[in-house]
């Protein structure tokens, strides 16, 4: 780090995410300074917005336009207004996919973030082989998704899988992991968590490293235990990062696609199990696009998913905002 780090951190607690940026100083400087203050922010966000507008926003607007049509793939669409949306509200298969998505999201995300926080805290300590342990956290990230799918497919094989073999020691009969909702949700959640826990650990760790150590020192002088320090210093200080990971996990979790899709390798897998036990909303979107060739309806599912994510992310934001500030 640069020498000014220690300096900087002594100046006080970092600002929280919702804190307003400092008021711009009265322009005392030259014309050049004023120009700098006025235009720099726009220049800095411009690259993002230019590319964003062309390659990301346009396709989305187009998608919305498509959702107002009865549009078969490769044919002319017929304008139907909100018909697709009203049909969706009554669509049992859609609501089933929403239920599955939220279910898998809760089963996978809560342990994932808590374990990530725990591991990051552990890795932020004096520890033999610390570098090695930190390295291992990233191994799941660099392993390809295809390899993960094949490996977990074997682990959860009904007849020869390691999971059933281990459960067999406790007298549990072979579980058909793809047959019931709960079994499939748990299997998919372990797959998701294996892949993403290390990633959250690293994000937390990067943030923990920026927490000024004086805070811990003075807390230690006051006799606060490690546990107390964790809950009263680390967690509140990490709040912006925790909010970040919660929102990202919400978005990623609700768009869950690759893991459940690959969990049922073989034919007809967009349905996510024989009774749609683990079909997520994104899989339903794909089913409408690539199996039923109904582009308009697929676009409607996409927009419904968008609304769902906005709602859940907002609720999660409100919940996580209370971290620390309530304590």
């Amino acid at each position: 780090m640069t020498p000014n780090t220690a300096d900087r951190t002594r100046r006080g607690r970092p600002a929280h995410s919702h804190a307003q940026p400092p008021p711009p100083r009265k322009a005392r400087g030259t014309f050049g300074t004023r120009l700098d203050m006025k235009t720099s922010p726009y220049l800095y966000v411009a690259p993002f917005f230019v590319i964003f507008l062309i390659f990301q926003l346009y396709p989305l607007v187009y998608t919305f336009w498509v959702s107002l049509h009865n549009q078969p793939l490769g044919g002319e669409g017929e304008f139907v207004g909100a018909d697709n949306f009203t049909a969706l509200m009554k669509d049992e298969q859609f609501w089933n996919s929403v239920y599955n998505t939220l279910g898998i999201f809760v089963v996978s995300t809560v342990p994932q973030l808590l374990i990530g926080l725990y591991l990051a805290n552990a890795l932020n300590r004096k520890l033999r082989g610390r570098g090695f342990f930190r390295m291992t956290m990233a191994v799941p990230i660099i392993t390809s998704t295809a390899a993960v799918a094949i490996i977990f497919g074997q682990i959860y094989n009904r007849d020869f899988g390691i999971a059933n073999w281990v459960l067999g020691w406790f007298g549990v009969e072979n579980i058909d992991w793809r047959a019931t909702k709960w079994a499939s949700w748990i299997a998919i959640s372990t797959m998701v968590d294996w892949r993403w826990t290390g990633y959250n650990t690293l994000i937390y760790l990067a943030s923990m490293q920026s927490i000024p150590k004086d805070l811990y020192e003075s807390a230690a002088l006051d006799g606060a235990s490690a546990r107390r320090q964790f809950w009263q210093i680390t967690v509140p200080m990490l709040r912006p990062t925790i909010i970040f990971t919660v929102i990202i996990s919400t978005i990623g979790g609700l768009q869950l696609f690759a893991e459940p899709l690959m969990f049922s390798s073989g034919s007809g897998n967009y349905t996510g199990g024989t009774l749609r036990q683990y079909q997520t909303v994104t899989m339903y979107l794909f089913e409408n696009m690539f199996t039923r060739f109904n582009l308009g309806y697929a676009a409607t599912v996409a927009w419904a998913l968008f609304l769902l994510i906005v709602i859940v992310a907002f609720i999660n934001y409100l919940l996580t905002r209370r971290i620390g500030s309530a304590k």
């Binding site: 497919g153 074997q154 007849d159 020869f160 049922s264």
Partner: peptide, 16 residues
């Protein structure tokens, strides 16, 4: 077994 799935492929080797 679900055809063309990995467990199906394993089934060939395991005489299922």
């Amino acid at each position: 077994l679900q055809t063309f799935s990995d467990p199906w492929a394993t089934g060939f080797k395991q005489d299922q």
